[in-house]
Amino acid sequence: MTTTAERQMELTLPMVADIEIAAARAAGNLAREIGMSAEKIDEMAHAIIEACINAREHSCCVDNRIYLRFVGTLQGVGNPRVDIWITDHGRGFDLIEARTRRQKLGTAYKRGRGIQLMEAHMDEVEIITSAEGTTVHMVKLENAKAGNHD
């Protein structure tokens, strides 16, 4: 199946209140241009919002910036795909601890559900985190059954 990169966008945003909305809108515009449906864009927006909030609230980075990259591709007719990378240069976090905490505490624990929401709203989520920073790579497909090109 032929895959072509239709749209690419890179943004560097300051870590200020509600900046996640700007990130979600930018990705939404790119996704809309390659034909992604409104509901899929809405799901993607909520995942981006959670990733940006995590970066802003927990990374403790010195540069106070979030680095975003969006790539929109078409995998055949009517199957847009958007790849999203959201990076901060903060201190990273213990991913295993974060996942364990949410499973142990369940619904009674009201915070720390951002990763769970990202995974629920996106088709793929990969988190690479270290003491030098964190990158969240997420993929949204219009038609998940059609597969991906990785």
Binding site: E20, I21, A24, D42, A45, H46, I49, E50, I53, T107, K110, R111, R113, G114, L117
Partner: peptide, 13 residues
């Protein structure tokens, strides 16, 4: 049209 996990945590409270 948009909610985040922090806002929802407050709704749960």
């Amino acid at each position: 049209k948009i909610v985040n996990s922090i806002g929802i945590s407050i709704l749960i409270e």
